[in-house]
Simulated assay, not measured.
Amino acid sequence: MSLITNVMDHSLDDGYAETAARRRADGDGGMPKTLRAKLGLAGGLVLAALIVTVGAAQARVAAPVVAKERGELIDRIDQETEAVDRLEDSIDELRADVSVRQRDALRDSGGDGSTLVGILSGAVAVHGPGVRLVVNDAKDTSVGGGSDARSTSGFSDTGRVRDRDMQRVVNGLWESGAEAVSINGQRLTALSAIRAAGDAILVDNRPLVPPYTVLAVGDGGKLSERFQNSADGLYLHALQENYGIRTAISVEDDVRLPAAPRVIVRTAQPITEKGTS
Rank of each mutant, 00 (worst) to 15 (best):
L35T: 13
L116T: 13
A83Y: 06
D157S: 13
N229D: 11
D140I: 04
R86L: 13
A67V: 04
R150L: 09
R226F: 04
T189F: 03
I194P: 05
G218Q: 00
A67S: 15
V214F: 05
L133P: 11
I183H: 05
Q186I: 10
S11F: 01
A123C: 07
V181T: 00
G185Y: 03
R101H: 09
D199M: 04
G244D: 00
D112V: 07
D14A: 12
K274G: 13
L202C: 05
S109L: 13
N229C: 00
L12M: 08
S250I: 02
D165M: 06
H10Y: 01
I201Q: 01
P261I: 01
T141S: 13
R195G: 07
A96M: 08
S109G: 12
S151G: 08
A149H: 10
V143Y: 02
I194H: 07
F227A: 04
D97Y: 07
N6M: 00
D92Y: 03
R60E: 11
D253F: 06
K38A: 13
E175A: 15
D219N: 15
A25L: 10
A216Y: 04
R262C: 01
M8Y: 00
L94N: 10
T276M: 10
T272M: 12
A96D: 15
V98N: 15
A149W: 11
G172N: 10
K68Y: 13
D163I: 00
I194Y: 05
D165E: 08
A193D: 14
V52W: 09
S250M: 02
T115L: 14
V54L: 15
K274I: 12
R162M: 14
G40V: 06
A17T: 08
S90V: 04
D14H: 00
G43K: 10
A196Y: 08
R150Y: 08
V214N: 04
W174K: 11
T5W: 00
E179R: 11
R24V: 07
L257H: 01
D204Q: 06
S90P: 02
S230D: 00
A138M: 05
A21N: 06
T152Y: 08
P129D: 05
S182A: 14
G220P: 02
G244A: 06
A67E: 15
G29E: 13
R23A: 11
L87D: 12
V170Y: 02
V134Y: 10
G244F: 00
S176M: 06
L47W: 04
A17P: 00
R86D: 15
A197F: 05
L106A: 14
S2Q: 14
R23L: 12
V54C: 06
